[in-house]
Design a protein around this nucleic acid. Sequence first.
DNA 1: GGCATCTATCTTGTATGCAATCTCGGACAT
DNA 2: ATGTCCGAGATTGCATACAAGATAGATGCC
Lengths: 218, 218
Amino acid sequence: MNSENPTLAEKLATAIADGILNGSLPPGLRLDEMGLAEQHGVSRTPVREALRQLSLSGLIDMRPRKGAVVSKATPDQVENLFVAMAEIEATCARLAAISMTPVERRRLQARHEGMLALAKTGDTGAYSDANVAFHSSIYTGSHNAPLAEFALNLRRRVGPFRRAQFQVEGRLLRSNQEHDAVVRAILSGDASGAHAAMLHHVSLVEDAFEAFAATNAA
Amino acid sequence: MNSENPTLAEKLATAIADGILNGSLPPGLRLDEMGLAEQHGVSRTPVREALRQLSLSGLIDMRPRKGAVVSKATPDQVENLFVAMAEIEATCARLAAISMTPVERRRLQARHEGMLALAKTGDTGAYSDANVAFHSSIYTGSHNAPLAEFALNLRRRVGPFRRAQFQVEGRLLRSNQEHDAVVRAILSGDASGAHAAMLHHVSLVEDAFEAFAATNAA
DNA sequence: GGCATCTATCTTGTATGCAATCTCGGACAT
DNA sequence: ATGTCCGAGATTGCATACAAGATAGATGCC
């Protein structure tokens, strides 16, 4: 939304969101306004506005007179998040194949080739960061602000559940191969091909998550 | 979101949203908190929370210390809204073709057949209402809450720009024919067919809007 | 006459206070 | 012993009050 927004409410919203995304505010935790207020050294008013904002992004649930809690997602809801994410990413890729400018296409290719080096090195952290940038550039490449915004929001929401995906052995190189199919389709303007390739890629991420979750649950 | 939410902020949010959607609050209008407050007979606090909520749905734009204005969309942005809408609706239709329960499928068919009668009668208002319900049932039929929510949000945002679409002569029957293709694909579980049919349908709506806008601009 | 600047006023952002509602613990009745 | 009802405490929702930044008009200067 508003990137440079110096109001306390905005800063609190991002601070609380960070807390939720990095796990320091676990799902199900009750967020009482008073506590958050004095914890951040402000009054209740900006806290209230931040909470209202977060509730619309789906990160927390607010019930009329019962306060706010960090959204506790059921497995079904997480599954839906991943499905929605895959669909939206695929749609963005399709539009990007049609709408990207030559400059954007060249940048996408350069970024992709840079990631191949990272994948070979096995630098998980750097690859993860580059991966976020890679996908984001496809969102913006769709040249459709509402879709791109929604994609970013979904990405934030699935973040807590996909943290360890690149830990799986060999995932980096496979990810790069899948990216390769996506990039080739986009560069050649193959809309449906880009859609299919991205859907395949993100669905595999989902599978990786499920495998990871299954091993952790066992 | 929260359907039965008796807080003033929620009621104000829907009231202001209605005002924007029905045109009584035209795009570009400045929304000063004080004015809205005494206009609705409340204090500024719930107004502020309502505005913050609306800003996240994209209906209004808020800038840090400069207040809120009703979103004034450029033609490009409106175009993007329609494109996003078409893509999301098509995605919902595809998922619906896969995920709808037998009961939902039968209800969809019944609703669709009922609309044929309305189209023949030429009852524009009733058809329009039924049309909203028809599309909404496909959103929920996707069994994917995030996507359905986003679709509803987009529908609200494009609302102001598609008000007169059914006024075009013969649009009702053509709409019904297009629905027929969508319904048939969904009922038969033809995922890609449902996607294509819905994309086609909504894109035609977009064309109708553009024709309408062109005639008005001329 | 035009433009910059300064100030007065207005609007927004934040804090605090009060009323209504919900939660939770205990007492009482069955 | 268990279920129900009631009341105190706590928390949310709303209103009001205060502070800070922005806008606009006027005034002085070029």
